[in-house]
Every structure is written in structure tokens, then in C-alpha cells.
Design a protein around this nucleic acid. Structure first.
Lengths: 210, 210
DNA sequence: GTCTATACGCGGATAGAC
DNA sequence: GTCTATCCGCGTATAGAC
């Protein structure tokens, strides 16, 4: 098949299909050959739209971050906005759990990720936080959200009860964590998030007393 | 070279070299060929000691977790112990930052990781935390520590000042984050950790008042 | 029972025809 | 702008020397 009348591919089509493959079968299964096959072309054609596979992954990561709701900043008091943001951030990552390793690399030059950083940092500074603390809070949020979305805590344990029974007495019920995976992970995220924000509120008050 | 008099390889040697390669050049560079070359053997020889490459990675992950100090539990009040543990946990992961994706998978059947879970969970329950909350706290700690060790916040930003100047006014100084990477990331971890523990102390007090 | 030699299939990427 | 052909390196698997 020589050059077609109208392009068979586009950056948008490629990114969409890449995300679909990642969501369905994981990052390891995303190969240029597989991606091309699902788009009904040959692998080298992809290189007319992206210089490397890396660029395709970068575009997919930007797409995910672009979906994070940031509208609470400037509309809610900072502790409320921060909590809502963390939940929205986590929701976006959990919607594509197999793509999380991509996002953890940082904003780099991805527009959506830079806009997110700008918004969160700006809102905290506007609320009265020192710039240095605002940076720390933004970073801490990313640590916690990314860590929670990267890998389930509950799924890290085997379903085999005998594994724990003898040697790990406190973990006698650990084999049941998998059954309640969603609930266990969301409860842990909620507890950690609320605790961290409560601690920040205390610190903010102490800061303004001084 | 036929069969040598004494074995050239051992599980310990292989795991040590694997960690050295990961630390030096990253997970992607760890191939069986590279690993074998650095050990002065041929790649297939590795399969006499490990069934798959996956098993080698698993053993490396266990080695890292085995280095986490847990002695503070049962010796310090739980808020102090939890804080010290989180710092020790992070230190172990930061010593092998490129191996963090391995550890985030959870304890599975790795003895050192199971011992860690057993110790942390047991200490919290012994201190008076409900089992469900103790699970959440253990999970939240893992989220935060893994997220912080997985990828630097500071290094996620480019050193190019022009990237931020026009479109992201609040990020005018973001290009300098890289210069102070260690300090920025450690300060953020400390702020998040102290805030979370402070919030947990509050919650614990409320729990015991009820 | 440990290592060597060798082969297979698949990965990312490039050159050049059309 | 997509194709064919091709390169190199990866993990895996098996046969056989000793």
C-alpha cells in the first residue's frame, strides 16, 4: 500500500489507541507493532507522527493529567480545595492505573501537568502559605496520590491464608484484603489524606500566630 | 569453557550484581545478557539459579526491604515509632531509587516485606488502634513513602527558566528546583510526614475520648 | 547438575521505494 | 505518509559437554 489519499493516522488517534492498550493489557503490552496492528497500519508509520515511542507515552500521560478537575481552587478554602483536588487527582490516576508509572516522572514539558502545578502552587501561595511550604505541600500531595494509585496495598497480599498463619500472627486476616481491595485502598487514602490536611491546618494556624 | 570445578554463580552473587546494575543504570538496563556479562558468564547460566528474570527482581526487592530498621517499634510511643519507621523506610528506598517500582508491588511472598507488615501492623494494634485503622495507617505510610521515593518532585521540573516564564507565572522559580533536589524532596517528605502523624494523633485522641 | 552453544520470536528503530 | 526490508538486542528454551 503506497501513500494514501488522506492520512490513515494522526497523533490523536495514536494516543487514544495507546491509552486503550495500556488500560486493557498494561504498559508492557504496548509495543509499536501492537499499536500499529490495532490501528490497521504497519509499525514504522507511527514514526511519521512521533519521533520515538517515548513521545507517544508522554502524550498519553499528558492526556490523563488534562482530565484532573482543578476548579475547586479559588472557590473553596484551601483545606477543602486541597482535599477535593487530591481526590480528583487520585481518581484520574486510578482511571488508568497501569499508566501511573508514566505520570510519576513529573511535569517535564507536558502542558497539562505544568498547568496543574501552577494552579495548586498558586492557590496555596494566595491563601497565605510561604512559597517554600507551598512547594512542599504540592510535592507531598503528589507523593501520596501517586503512591496510592501506583499500586494497591490490598492486592500486595496473597489470598493464601496458610502463608500468614504460622509465621505472621498479626496478619491472620491479610489473605482477605484482596476481597475488599477497593474499600481497603480508598479507606486508607481517605484516612491518610484527612490526617495530613488536619495536620497542615494546625501548622497553618501556628504559622499565623507567630 | 565446560563445567567449572566450583560454581561461578550463586543466588547471592546474582542478586548483588543485579542491584548494582539497577542502581547504576536503571531497571531498563538490567537484562539477563548484561547481568551475565558483568558476572563473566553467559546469560542462560542464570536460569540454573533462578527460574525467571522475575525471580531475580523479586530477590533484589526483598534484599532492599530487609535493610529497613524496625527496632523502634515496641520501644517508642507509636507516633514517634511511626515517624522514625517512615524515615527508615524512605531511606532504604532512596538508597535504590531505581528499584522502587519493584517494591511497590507489595509484600507478596517476600519474607522481609511480610515481616515489615507484621511489625508495623502489630505495633499499631498493640498501641490501641482498631485493626481496620491500623491497616489504613500502614497502607497510607506505604503510599506516602513509595510515592516520595519513586520519583523526585524537584527533578520533575526542567532547568530551563524560559519554559515557565511566560505561561506559568507562579512557577517562575521552578527551574531552580533541580539545584536543590535533595533538600526540596526531603523537606516535602518531612512536612507531609509530620502533618500526617499530627493528624493521626488528633484522631487517636478523639477515638479514645468516645 | 552446572554451564555452553545455539535457535526462536519479538521488541524499537531506520533506510529507501513509491 | 505508508510501505517493505532489515538491523540489533532482548528473554526464553533446549540440547549436550563434562
Amino acid at each position: 500500500m503506497p501513500r494514501p489519499r488522506s492520512p490513515l493516522l494522526s497523533r490523536r488517534l495514536i494516543v487514544e489507541q495507546a491509552l486503550a492498550i495500556i488500560d486493557a493489557d498494561g504498559l508492557e503490552e504496548l509495543s509499536t507493532r501492537r499499536l500499529a496492528r490495532d490501528l490497521a497500519v504497519r509499525a514504522p508509520s507511527l514514526y511519521n507522527h512521533f519521533a520515538t515511542k517515548e513521545e507517544i507515552l508522554d502524550a498519553a500521560a499528558n492526556e490523563i493529567i488534562a482530565g484532573v478537575d482543578l476548579s475547586m481552587f479559588g472557590r473553596e478554602p484551601w483545606p477543602v480545595a486541597l482535599t477535593q483536588f487530591a481526590r480528583a487527582y487520585r481518581a484520574a490516576l486510578v482511571a488508568h492505573p497501569k499508566a501511573v508509572p508514566l505520570i510519576v516522572r513529573g511535569p517535564a514539558r507536558r502542558p497539562a501537568a505544568l498547568r496543574l502545578a501552577e494552579t495548586v502552587f498558586g492557590a496555596l501561595v494566595d491563601a497565605g502559605w510561604p512559597r517554600r511550604d507551598a512547594t512542599s505541600i504540592g510535592a507531598a500531595m503528589r507523593y501520596f496520590v501517586a503512591g496510592s494509585a501506583l499500586g494497591s496495598f490490598a492486592l500486595g497480599f496473597e489470598a493464601d491464608a496458610r502463608l500468614y498463619a504460622e509465621e505472621y500472627p498479626h496478619l491472620v486476616d491479610a489473605h482477605r484484603l484482596r476481597e475488599h481491595q477497593r474499600e481497603v485502598d480508598e479507606r486508607a487514602f481517605g484516612l491518610g489524606l484527612e490526617s495530613m490536611v488536619a495536620g497542615l491546618v494546625r501548622r497553618f494556624a501556628a504559622l499565623n500566630r507567630a
